[in-house]
Design a protein around this nucleic acid. Structure first.
Length: 342
DNA sequence: CAATAGTAACCGTGGACGTG
DNA sequence: CACGTCCACGGTTACTATTG
């Protein structure tokens, strides 16, 4: 492997791709954050969860709708699923064009967004309509020159899970972890505010799970046990308001290990129901194959990345939302079958 | 449909402060 | 004074809505 750590990679990116920026390292770090998001989205894709996903949507705190938090990915129950075949295909593929194929939307005004732009950039989880019962989203499934297959899903308003991605770099001149923790605190606050299943710290250090039942009584027990019961139950009453919270963090092997976590990691780990690590080795290997020594099949993804920075050269076509069609295909095939590490 | 303005998030850095 | 912790901010980016 060409790079032993993401930290070394970030410095290389700063000196090459992001040479134009006033603060190169910062821009490179931001781009690495975008990569973590992309990996997460395409991992959800390979888990067959794509049609549940909405990106960057506001989720209210539990029973406190005045305060909303934008979450990276929220997963919602599917109320109805429609397959749409569009042929002939004329770009850009707008929400208005998709609407013509969907009788249930005839009375509705759709948003003016594009699921597929003229220059072949896909929009993941395109929101066609934001209705009372929830968002209607579209994803381009298969695509050829003249023909396009879309999956359109009517989703419920309330998500059953949320995913957040975090990346924390190594400060210049530092050998160990970050000096700031508010990123972790922000993530922790959201994770602990959105679900009907809440945590109470016990004197012995464990967490008690508490969930108010419709009749006002409390369902309670050790957090992990209640969590498991709620997930296993298929009762809509039990699931009401419950949101599984998942964090995805890029791990720097050079400043902590999964056995010896720093404070930021401990805050995140105790706040999310599930914390996934992208290991230093795994992430740098991915980026190495993607950007520095690309395999032939990842070449389109590399091109999309390089074409996206600096931004003045056009719109970004390598993010969790906007993705060049050929890069999308490459990412799907590469991440298919890949397991989350750590 | 391209350009623009506005909002919010992310990442890295500076500095204050307490402790050993 | 090195080190860890915390507060706070600036630059950059992503995304949405609006406009012409």
């Amino acid at each position: 492997m060409a790079f032993e750590s993401v930290d070394a990679l970030q410095r290389t990116l700063a000196e090459t791709v992001f040479q134009y920026a006033a603060d190169r390292k910062k821009a490179a770090g931001r781009a690495l954050g975008t990569l973590v998001e992309i990996i997460t989205f395409y991992t959800l894709h390979t888990w067959n969860l794509r049609d549940h996903v909405v990106i960057e949507r506001s989720v209210p705190e539990f029973a406190n709708p005045e305060i909303l938090h934008n979450v990276e990915f929220s997963l919602h129950p599917i109320q109805a699923r429609h397959e749409v075949e569009i042929s002939p295909l004329s770009l850009p593929l707008t929400a208005a064009k998709i609407k013509r194929h969907l009788p249930f939307l005839h009375e509705t005004t759709v948003k003016s967004t594009q699921a597929l732009s003229r220059d072949a950039v896909k929009r993941n989880a395109t929101i066609l309509v934001e209705s009372e019962t929830g968002p209607v989203i579209a994803n381009v499934d298969t695509l050829s020159d003249s023909n396009c297959r879309l999956i359109v899903c009517e989703l419920s308003t309330d998500p059953f899970a949320i995913f957040e991605c975090k990346r924390v770099g190594v400060e210049e001149g530092m050998r160990k972890g970050p000096q700031t923790i508010e990123k972790a605190k922000q993530g922790a606050y959201v994770a602990r505010s959105v679900s009907s299943l809440q945590k109470v710290r016990l004197r012995n250090g464990q967490f008690q799970g508490v969930m108010e039942q419709p009749d006002g009584s409390f369902r309670t027990g050790l957090y992990d046990e209640v969590l498991r019961e709620v997930i296993d139950s298929s009762s809509a009453v039990e699931l009401a308001g419950f949101i599984l919270t998942v964090g995805v963090v890029s791990n720097h092997g050079n400043w902590f290990t999964s056995d010896n976590r720093n404070k930021e990691l401990r805050v995140l780990a105790q706040s999310y129901d599930w914390l996934l690590f992208l290991t230093d080795a795994g992430l740098s290997q991915f980026i190495d194959r993607l950007l520095l020594n690309p395999t032939p099949e990842l070449e389109p993804a590399r091109e999309a990345f390089l074409a996206s920075y600096p931004r003045s050269s056009g719109t970004n076509r390598f993010t969790k939302v906007r993705m060049a069609v050929d890069a999308d295909e490459a990412l799907r095939s590469v991440l298919h079958g890949a397991r989350s590490r750590g």
